[in-house]
């Protein structure tokens, strides 16, 4: 029953999925943190930019963003992100699109975490003479990250599943392979089942692990 699988690189496709997810997760954590810092910061221009970015980007379908990176950035504007072959270009464009999209959600998860930090913590830090960046980086964000592990885990799980949208611009990840297999084989249910199982194998441990981490690092008050 599983004989046909030998003709396909299932592990390779899921490896691409994992690479997409990990790179996008790191990128969106960094960009999302910067966006959150802008949104809580004292500079009106940055606050405005952060607010506008989040509200625009999170309301655009991911498919549109991913297609835009390929059709708009690459084919119209000629941006290739330092790669020559289509495979690498599309992979990098997909990561860029996923980071742009996911960071809006990271920002909001972090901002809800920042709101759990009592205002007295920042006041005490300011009273010591710490600068705005130090107050945020040494006192507020470390506590905010600890209380947003749960929401961030949700964002990460959504991101892992969202990598399937990269199939729209031909990145050879699990969903694109699934489409190819379904076209070639008469095993619709089995193939969907295998791909679904593959994603559960990626997301379920992620959720459980981060749930455990969240409890372990929680700040006691």
């Amino acid at each position: 029953m599983f004989d046909f699988l030998e003709d396909y690189d299932l592990l390779g496709a899921f490896w691409t999925t994992v690479q997409l997810a990990v790179l996008s997760a790191v990128g969106s954590l960094i960009w999302g943190t910067l966006l959150a810092a802008m949104r809580v910061g004292p500079v009106p221009l940055m606050r405005g930019f952060g607010t506008a970015y989040v509200n625009i980007v999170r309301n655009i379908p991911l498919t549109v963003i991913i297609l835009f990176t390929s059709l708009g950035l690459n084919q119209t504007l000629g941006i290739s992100l330092g790669a020559d072959d289509f495979e690498t270009i599309n992979f990098r464009l997909a990561v860029l699109g996923l980071v742009a999209y996911t960071s809006a959600f990271v920002c909001e998860a972090l901002r809800s975490g920042i709101n759990t930090v009592p205002v007295g913590q920042a006041e005490a830090a300011r009273a010591l003479g710490l600068s705005f960046n130090q107050v945020l980086g040494l006192v507020v964000l470390p506590q905010a990250f600890r209380s947003s592990v749960g929401p961030l885990a949700n964002v990460l799980i959504a991101l892992i599943k969202n990598t399937t949208v990269a199939a729209a611009i031909g990145v050879a990840e699990a969903a694109l392979l699934m489409k190819e297999m379904i076209e070639n084989e008469a095993q619709l249910l089995l193939i969907s089942g295998i791909i679904a199982f593959g994603f559960v194998v990626l997301t379920l441990p992620t959720g459980l692990f981060l749930g455990w981490v969240g409890k372990k690092v929680a700040v006691k008050r």
Binding site: P118, G120, Q121, E123, A124, A125, V139, P142, Q143, R146, V219, K220, R221
Partner: peptide
């Protein structure tokens, strides 16, 4: 020194 101490909890 604050009423609610405000020691850094982490």
């Amino acid at each position: 020194v604050f009423q609610s101490f405000n020691l850094f909890a982490h």
